[in-house]
Amino acid sequence: MTTVSPHNARLTFRALEPVHGMIYFTPHGPDVYRELGITDPRMMYFASRSAALGPVPAEVTISTFFNFNPAVVGAVLPTAWDIASPAEILRARLEAVDRSLRQVWGEDISGAQVREAADLARQAAERACERPQGRPLFAAHAALPWPDEPHLVLWHAQSLLREFRGDGHVALLLTEGLSGIEALITHSGTGEIAPEVLRISRSWSEQDWAAGVNGLRERGWLVDDDIALSEHGKARRAAIESRTDELAVYPYEAIGDAGCERLRVLVAPLTIRVIEGDLGFPPQLSERYRQAIQAGSR
Rank of each mutant, 00 (worst) to 15 (best):
His20Asp: 01
Pro30Tyr: 13
Ala292Gly: 14
Arg165Asn: 00
Pro132Asn: 06
Gln133Phe: 07
Ile255Cys: 06
Arg49Pro: 01
Gln207Pro: 00
Arg219Leu: 14
Leu11Asp: 13
Met44Ser: 14
Leu266Lys: 06
Trp146Arg: 05
Arg162Val: 01
Ala124Thr: 02
Glu17Ile: 06
Pro147Cys: 03
Gln133Ser: 08
Asp31Phe: 09
Arg165Glu: 04
Glu35Ala: 04
Thr26Ile: 05
Gln103Tyr: 01
Trp204Arg: 01
Met22Gln: 15
Ala239Ser: 15
Phe68Glu: 14
Ala52Phe: 11
Pro70Ile: 05
Glu182His: 08
Glu35Phe: 01
Ile89His: 12
Glu149Phe: 04
Arg131Asn: 06
Thr3Met: 10
Leu77Phe: 12
Asp225Lys: 04
Val72Ile: 14
Tyr250Arg: 10
Arg199Pro: 04
Ile240Arg: 12
Glu95Trp: 03
Val73Thr: 14
Leu247Gly: 02
Arg288Thr: 01
Asp225Phe: 03
Asp208Leu: 06
Ala52Met: 13
Arg49Glu: 13
Pro27Thr: 03
Arg288Pro: 00
Arg290Tyr: 12
Asn214Thr: 04
Asn67Ile: 02
Ala75Pro: 14
Ala210Trp: 01
Ser100Lys: 06
Phe65Ile: 12
Ala96Glu: 05
Val104Tyr: 01
Glu231Ala: 13
Thr39Ile: 10
Ile181Glu: 04
Pro147Lys: 02
Pro18Arg: 00
Ala142Leu: 09
Arg14Glu: 15
Ile255Lys: 02
Val170Met: 07
Asp119Ile: 00
Leu77Cys: 07
Leu263Lys: 09
Gly166Pro: 02
Glu176Lys: 05
Gln133Asp: 15
Ala112Cys: 00
Tyr250Gln: 11
Glu107Asp: 13
Ala254Leu: 06
Val56Phe: 12
Val197Gly: 01
Ala295Asp: 14
Phe25Asp: 13
Leu160Ala: 00
Leu173Asp: 03
Gly189Val: 09
Val56Thr: 14
Leu229His: 13
Pro195Ile: 04
Ile181Arg: 03
Ala58Tyr: 10
Ile38Glu: 11
Ser188Ile: 05
Phe25Glu: 10
Ser85Lys: 11
